[in-house]
Each structure stands twice: as C-alpha cells, then as structure tokens.
C-alpha cells in the first residue's frame, strides 16, 4: 500500500498518510467550495488501509480554518477511523487548536461527542 501525500493550497490542507507507520496528518486550511472531491482519495485510502492496518493509528488534525462543506467530509474520515477502532485496532485522534481558539476547540469536542474514538485536545502555544 502506498503513501498518500497531498500538498496544501490556500483552500485545501496538506495531507500525509503513511500505511507503514500508521500516521495520518491533515494540516492547514480546508475551505473548498466542494469538499467531497477533495476528500475522496483520503476516504479511499482509509478504506484500503483498514484491510491491513497498523496495531496503532495516530491521526493528527491541525486545521487553521475549515468550512461546513469540509466538516461533513471530516466526519466521514472519522467514521472510517471509528470502524477501525471497532475492529479492535488502536486509534487516537490528536485535535490541535490555537491558544484561546474556542471555536476550533468546540469543533473538536463536537466530533468527540459523535465519534467513538479517543480524542486528545492539544493547544498550540506560540
């Protein structure tokens, strides 16, 4: 299985997904008008990865901005991870937010209350 690396743009995040280390990173901005198209390869990759995952999968989400069109796609990503967890594999989602950014912290907590995967809220201090 291959690495998935997508370079960030002003509208879309940097994505790094490594099947050998079990590390997934989504970082930057996610504000495309149509997010479904952007997130499709990520969802497909997770589908394939779920066939032979690492014992432990670490997911780092560090978003500066995301729009509501992306929020549903991010939920879909988390649902794939929830399935992995359900199949007895360790999964941890690290949700990064800028110091005092309550909107971003709250967004992470919204996901945490919907998805049955452990979340760790991590404040980024300058």
């Amino acid at each position: 299985m291959e690495l998935l690396n997508i370079e960030g743009t002003p509208k879309t995040p940097t994505v790094n997904m490594n099947p050998n280390s079990g590390e997934v990173e989504i970082k930057g901005r996610s504000i495309p008008e149509n997010s479904i198209e952007f997130y499709k390869p990520i969802i497909d990759w997770l589908d394939e990865y779920s066939g032979s995952p690492q014992p432990s999968t670490i997911v780092n989400i560090q978003l500066e901005y995301f729009n509501t069109s992306s929020s549903k796609c991010i939920l879909d990503v988390f649902k794939k991870l929830e399935q992995l967890k359900k199949n007895q594999h360790d999964v941890l989602i690290n949700w990064y937010y800028e110091e005092d950014d309550e909107d971003m912290l709250e967004a992470g907590e919204d996901y945490e209350s919907i998805i049955k995967v452990p979340f760790k809220m991590i404040q980024i201090v300058d």
Binding site: S69, S71, L75, I114
Partner: peptide
C-alpha cells in the same frame, strides 16, 4: 450546538452545498 451536531451527523450533503450547516455555523 446540538442542532449543528444533529444536522452534521444525520443529513446527507448535496454536491452543491454543505447540507444546510452554513447558516447554523
């Protein structure tokens, strides 16, 4: 907050928009 989470988790999104989350957000 509860309404946002409900729509996020239950509504299918169209190709066009964000499934009605925009105004709530």
């Amino acid at each position: 907050k509860e309404f946002y989470k409900f729509v996020l988790n239950n509504q299918t999104f169209s190709e066009k928009g964000g499934g009605g989350l925009g105004l709530i957000d």
